[in-house]
Every structure is written in C-alpha cells, then in structure tokens.
Simulated scan of single mutants.
Amino acid sequence: MGPEKLADYSLKNKIVVVTGGGSGICLSFVKIAHSLGAKMIIGDLRLTQEAKEFMSRVGRDRIVFQPCDVAKWDQLQNLVSTSEAKYKDVPDVWVAGAGVFEPPSSNFWLDPEDTRYATVDINTSHPMKLTRIAMRAVLGKNKPGTVLIISSISGLRGNYGAPMYCATKFAMIGFVRSLAEAEKREGLRVMAICPGLTHTPLWSERPDTMNDFGYEPEHTMSPTDVAERMIEMCQQKSKYGGGVVLETSLYGTRVIPEWNVDPPKHPRLGVGIGDKSREAFGHVSDLLKKERLMGLQKVTSLNGTACLTYTKSRL
C-alpha cells in the first residue's frame, strides 16, 4: 500500500496508544504504525507470543507495553501517565481496539452475569471513556488528536446469535456520529472502522464459535488488511474527517452515509459473520426451549394447572 505515500497527517514521531494491541488487528496496526516512525503504547491484558517477539525484535525505544484492563477506567487513564513518562507528552492518536465477541463469560443467551455485562463494559464503555480521556488530554496540551474506534459490520446489521455484540457495535457508530463536530470545535477527530469477517483470535481460538456462526475462511480478511485501512484513515486526514464510519471487507471499502444506507452491491459485501449463522443456532433454540419448559414446570408446581394454562396463553 505504501502508507507513507498517502499521508497528509504523518504518523512519524506521533504518539499512538492502542488498546487491544497485543493481538489480532490491533497488533498488525501497531506493527505498521511503528514501521512509519510512530511511538507506540500497547494497552492490553497481556501480549501474545507474536507481540512479544515483535517487541523483542524492534527494541523498546519507540514501543512500550502497559498492562490494561479496559473495563477499569483508572487503567485507561494510566495510559496517559505511561505516555507522559515514556514520551514526555500525551498521545496524538488513540485507537480503541480491545473487544470481545459473545464469550461464555459475558453472553446474552447464556446470561451468566448477575450485576453487569462485561461485554458492554469492554466493547462500548471503554471506547467512550477512552475518547473522553483523549479529549481531556489533548485539550490540556492544546493540540489536535485522533480517535479511531473499531466497530464492526455487525454494527450495521443484526444477528440473532450475537445480539449483545451487535448492539455494542451499533452503539459505537452512533457515538462516533455524535462526535463529528468535535473535530471542528475541539480539534479531536473521532472515527470508526467497521471490518467484515477477519481472521483473529476471537475466531481462531474458539472453534466452537467458528462452527456456531458459520465461519467461512474464503470470505475472511487478514488482520493486516484491516490495519492498513486504519493507517489510511489516521493519515489521510483530509479524506477521513470526524464522524466518518468506514466499512471494509474482503470485497471492498465504502464510507457509510449518515442516512439512507444502501444495501451492499456485492452479495458478500457487508456480511459480518457468516450467513450460515442464521441457521446455525440450534443451541440457542435448545436453550430457550429448556427455559420455557422450566418456567412452565415451576409455575405448575407453585400454582397448579390453571396458572399453567394462563402462562401458555401469554407465551
């Protein structure tokens, strides 16, 4: 791609913080940005072996790993302190890339949580809070900034098997749209990218999920494909302004308009998780049948047959 040739906002010598930079799409972004001369901060729970090897290879002069649980706001704030300690300034570019995809620990259908959904904390609250931290930090230094949030094509279409994931990604599109004015008013450019199906650990480390959602390798991008588009968005400031939502898939890239979004022109463009997933949720149906049966049995044992008949009519 030659991203250095496309730049009207060079990443060279810019401080770039990336949550989720220890693996997947964001690790690919870290590698490219670092090669362009950026000063990198990786905020993640841990580094993959690939990330460790990369950092060992390039040295620690322009890259630092800061352990960070993005659901904890004090740890997000600590990324600013890390930047100031390492690079003597706050970040110029902020990439909110950490995310989860319907894990068993925070899943709408399994519903294992008693107080809050961790998926919402990670996929929605974290990018919002990081953006607010970024705004406060760059305003305090009286300098411009860029925030790039990873949403998803699943934030443009629903999926019965992944409603919480889709909802969190929908939310990020609305959030970015709402902050379009921040570039003109405050000098903070807030954007989102919506990748299609991408081969990352969210899939590769969960074969059961690949099966449930109809994962189709032939329609899958590489993390580098997405990272290159992200670099382009960061560097082509005149082309990608505040409020931009960019969809990218194996079959093409388009800026999503604010109103009246046309359906994909290519039969595969716009597909997030595999189409087969719409028929692949026997486990969801089985779960809900059990819940229905358990509910009816409980009502029967407590209140008798009359109440059972009433409950059926409500269903």
Results as ranks from 00 to 15, higher is better:
residue 89 D to Q: 15
residue 88 K to P: 06
residue 112 P to A: 03
residue 118 A to L: 15
residue 98 A to N: 01
residue 118 A to M: 14
residue 110 L to T: 08
residue 97 G to E: 04
residue 101 F to G: 06
residue 109 W to S: 10
residue 96 A to M: 05
residue 114 D to L: 13
residue 102 E to H: 01
residue 94 W to Y: 10
residue 94 W to P: 04
residue 95 V to Q: 02
residue 109 W to L: 08
residue 96 A to V: 04
residue 120 V to Y: 11
residue 113 E to I: 04
residue 101 F to M: 12
residue 113 E to S: 14
residue 89 D to Y: 12
residue 109 W to D: 13
residue 87 Y to F: 15
residue 89 D to E: 15
residue 88 K to V: 13
residue 96 A to C: 14
residue 96 A to L: 06
residue 115 T to G: 07
residue 100 V to H: 01
residue 111 D to K: 13
residue 118 A to C: 07
residue 118 A to S: 12
residue 94 W to I: 09
residue 97 G to R: 00
residue 106 S to D: 06
residue 100 V to K: 00
residue 113 E to F: 12
residue 90 V to R: 05
residue 118 A to E: 13
residue 97 G to D: 05
residue 93 V to I: 12
residue 115 T to S: 12
residue 110 L to M: 10
residue 111 D to F: 14
residue 109 W to H: 15
residue 91 P to K: 05
residue 90 V to G: 07
residue 87 Y to M: 12
residue 120 V to K: 03
residue 105 S to F: 11
residue 110 L to N: 09
residue 99 G to T: 00
residue 113 E to K: 06
residue 103 P to R: 00
residue 95 V to M: 07
residue 104 P to T: 07
residue 91 P to I: 09
residue 116 R to L: 09
residue 98 A to S: 07
residue 94 W to T: 06
residue 94 W to R: 07
residue 94 W to G: 05
residue 113 E to Q: 11
residue 116 R to N: 09
residue 88 K to E: 15
residue 114 D to E: 15
residue 116 R to F: 13
residue 120 V to H: 08
residue 120 V to W: 13
residue 89 D to F: 10
residue 115 T to L: 14
residue 95 V to G: 00
residue 98 A to T: 02
residue 97 G to W: 01
residue 108 F to M: 11
residue 95 V to N: 01
residue 108 F to D: 09
residue 97 G to K: 00
residue 96 A to Q: 03
residue 88 K to T: 13
residue 92 D to K: 00
residue 92 D to Q: 02
residue 106 S to T: 05
residue 90 V to W: 04
residue 89 D to L: 11
residue 100 V to Y: 02
residue 95 V to T: 01
residue 87 Y to L: 13
residue 98 A to V: 03
residue 98 A to H: 03
residue 95 V to K: 01
residue 113 E to A: 12
residue 109 W to E: 11
residue 118 A to G: 08
residue 115 T to E: 14
residue 103 P to C: 02
residue 101 F to L: 13
residue 88 K to H: 15
residue 101 F to I: 05
residue 90 V to N: 06
residue 104 P to H: 06
residue 116 R to G: 07
residue 113 E to N: 12
residue 105 S to R: 01
residue 110 L to I: 14
residue 110 L to A: 10
residue 97 G to C: 02
residue 106 S to Q: 05
residue 102 E to Q: 04
residue 107 N to P: 11
residue 93 V to K: 01
residue 116 R to I: 10
residue 115 T to C: 09
residue 97 G to F: 01
residue 88 K to N: 15
residue 87 Y to N: 12
residue 100 V to M: 08
residue 105 S to A: 14
residue 105 S to C: 08
residue 106 S to L: 02
residue 93 V to T: 04
residue 112 P to K: 00
residue 93 V to W: 05
residue 117 Y to E: 15
residue 107 N to L: 06
residue 87 Y to V: 12
residue 103 P to A: 04
residue 98 A to C: 02
residue 114 D to M: 10
residue 96 A to F: 03
residue 113 E to L: 05
residue 89 D to H: 12
residue 100 V to C: 03
residue 106 S to C: 03
residue 114 D to V: 10
residue 108 F to V: 13
residue 109 W to A: 09
residue 103 P to T: 02
residue 89 D to K: 15
residue 94 W to N: 05
residue 103 P to F: 02
residue 116 R to D: 09
residue 103 P to W: 03
residue 115 T to R: 11
residue 110 L to H: 07
residue 87 Y to H: 11
residue 114 D to F: 12
residue 112 P to E: 05
residue 118 A to Q: 13
residue 105 S to N: 08
residue 118 A to R: 09
residue 105 S to T: 12
residue 101 F to S: 07
residue 97 G to A: 01
residue 114 D to N: 11
residue 94 W to V: 07
residue 102 E to W: 01
residue 108 F to A: 15
